[in-house]
Amino acid sequence: MAHDMEVVNPRAGLFRVILTAYGVLIYLFLFTPIAVMVLLSFNKSKVVGFPMTGFTLDWYSSLTQNMIIQDALGKSLAVGVSVTVLATVIGTAAAFPLVRAHIKYRSAVRVFITLPIMIPGLLIGVAILVLSTNILHLQPSLPIAVIGQTVLATPFVILVVSSRLESLDRNFERAAADLGAGPVQRFSFVVLPLVYPGIVAAALMAFTLSLDEFVVTNFIIGSDQTLPIYIYSQLKFGITPEVNALASLMLLGTITLVVVTTLGLRLIKMLTAKSRQEEKTGVPA
């Protein structure tokens, strides 16, 4: 089948080679820095760089002893969870009117509501700092950082959920109404089950966004430290292998989160299919 193209274009084979090589180059471009960082986190030498002098897990074990890092990790997770919950709830709630209300100039409203994505983080950071300290007289703190990150993450949630909502066939709701479902039942039995993959994806996005947010957070977090703030503070003393190890772990954490979520969604699907079977036969499998 692939060879059919060669009848149309005699040079198709050559193009395929070029395209493959280009694809590989893009992967190298994207992931070489990360690969080097992960590799060096296992380097014995205290000096970060090649050649590697040997393999060690010392830097990882020293992380577990570092109370400051553990504190920063705790705060990162606390902020991350808060931001995820806030942004997901606010963003999902905003997506509904954006898609379904009869809004004049809908596309303008949409661009406007997602503007925080386009505005440089630096400006948002300064703006929130000015608003909180000079106007509201609130000192920079963890809760202010949560608010700042929520401002950043919510537009992404709105985009993801509203695109899912737009692709939802309104006939499902008409059918549900036809079958006797009131507005609340339509939402909980039809709309929510059909858009929740979008909501989960949006939540995941909000969490990862929060986990590595630095620019805005740095302005408004005050004396507390999340992991990115901690890493930045360490850089003042030069890049240490410990920082490499920490960054590698964060990478692992992010990948794990994505994998777990994907598997989790699949598991839910499997379990509901299984419970259907049990209902049918009356015997738990």
Binding site: N171, F172, A175, A177, D178, G180
Partner: peptide, 18 residues
Amino acid sequence: PNRRPINTVFQSYALFPH
């Protein structure tokens, strides 16, 4: 619609995919 003693077969069927 939900309070009318009527049911509908839609052109697109609108069967709930979930």
